[in-house]
Structures are given as C-alpha cells and as structure tokens.
Amino acid sequence: MSENKKVMNKPNKSTGLPRKRFYRARAHSNPLSDSHFPVPLTPSHVDYALHYPQYFQTDHTIADNGDVNNNSTASLHKTQSKKIQFADIGCGFGGLIVSLSTLFPETLMIGMEIRDKVTEYVKERILALRETNPGQYQNISVVRTNSMKYIPNFFEKGQLSKMFFLFPDPHFKEKNHRRRVISPHLLDEYAYTLESGGIIYTITDVEELGEWMKACLEDHPLFEAISEEEFAADPVVKLLTSATEEGQKVARNNGETFTAMFRRISPSDTESGDVL
C-alpha cells in the first residue's frame, strides 16, 4: 500500500518538489485524542543527526559504520553545542520555515505538524530543496507531533527564541475553545520553552480568534506586547503573510489578517510588577 503510494506521489519533474495534491489532508485534527506516534523521552533524546544531517555529520558517519549506542551518545553530546531555536507550531505545508531557512541560515528550526500526510509532504519538500540547492536548507526540519501535549519533550527551558502560531484552527464553538493552540494554560508551557526576550508570533484571518489570542497573551504575566516600531522593523513579520500557504490564500481573497506579537519577559520583571 505504502509502496503504491510512493509510485503515485511522483514529484514535479521540473522543480523536483513534491506535489501538494497528493498530500491533502482534512484541515482539522483533534489535539485531545490519544497520540499514536513516538515522542522523544526528553529534549536530549531528540535525534538532531536525523533532522540536520549536515550539521551533525560526524555522527552520521559513526551511524554508518558504528553501532547504535555509539551514535546516540555522540548525538547527545552534539546536541549541547547547537540547538533548535525557532519552532513553527502547526507548520502546515512548511512555507514559513522554508523562507526563514535562507533568512537565518545559521539557526536551526523545526516545523511541528500533527497531520501525518502534511508532515510527509514537508519532509519530502525539504529533502527536494536540499537536493536542488546544495548547501542550503540544511537548518530546517519537520516532525509529526502534538505540540499541545509534547512541547516539553522537545525543548529545554528557555531554548527557543522564536515561536510561530500561524493561522491556527479557530475552533469556533465555545466547548472546543480548549482545543485552541493559544490558551491561557498552554501559554505557561510556551513561556517555559522561550528564552527571556524570545518572541511569539501569531496571525489569523479570523477576527474572533485574533482577539482571543491577543487577550490571552495580554493577560499572561510572562508576556508583553511588542512596540509598533519594533513590529515594523522585524523582517520576519512580512513573511507571516507572504510565505505561508494560508497567508497567500487570504491575500488572494483580499482578506484581512490579525497579527499579535509578544515578548517573553523574565520572571523577576513580573515579580516587581506584581508588587506594584
């Protein structure tokens, strides 16, 4: 069955990129259901050699001629030298990380996506990009996971400098609000993985959700809104709409988008704020 699919999913002949139509999936996934995919035990168990072979090449050669144990200890050691710094939560077809890859060529970044087929597409896309552009796109990767449950299994405290939540599922019904990826309780976990000064980017074309995300972030004591000037100066901001598939779709329909950017502030700042 899977072999059949591979034959069917022929990449585009001119660009070598996988074709989206073979990887279409239902837009919604229930984050509350039990997961049936492997999850790293701790952040040090994330296999960097698998995700970023060029950066962790030495490990790869060990993996080729050495045994499994050797490889895992070596990659564990390497992990300490370079870590993932950007995470695109719900990366979809991966438009943002692909654009960011060339903008921040020295930063490791990962896309997290819960839909199996879509993750497969991003994986193929990155492999194709690496092949056609030697030396490039080595700093991006994708993983299939439920980030609402397993963020602490992937990242250490204060490891990330940027987190992206672009066009998340709006979950309109009130009883489904707890499935929203930005929620007051989940922001605690995002604050834990972000370094002090790290930035959360959120964007949506649904006004109601945009207001919800903004309100959640404004009410959270570990986040502060980013000033207009900084907002305008950030080169990443225009990618939020131009690089992502959802953003392009909204632009085509002349739709409106609602952006919220917040900075992680350190607990000592908030404590003094609490006293006041």
Partner: peptide
Amino acid sequence: VTVFPKRPLSGAHEIQSFCLG
C-alpha cells in the same frame, strides 16, 4: 514543577522544570 506564587489565586504561570524520564 510549577513555582507556587505568593498570590496563587491569580494563577501559577512560571514553570520551574519538567521531570521527564
């Protein structure tokens, strides 16, 4: 592991650590 604040009724937002293993 969550920091238990002095005024906990307004929420405990600061995570000290996760014990995973």
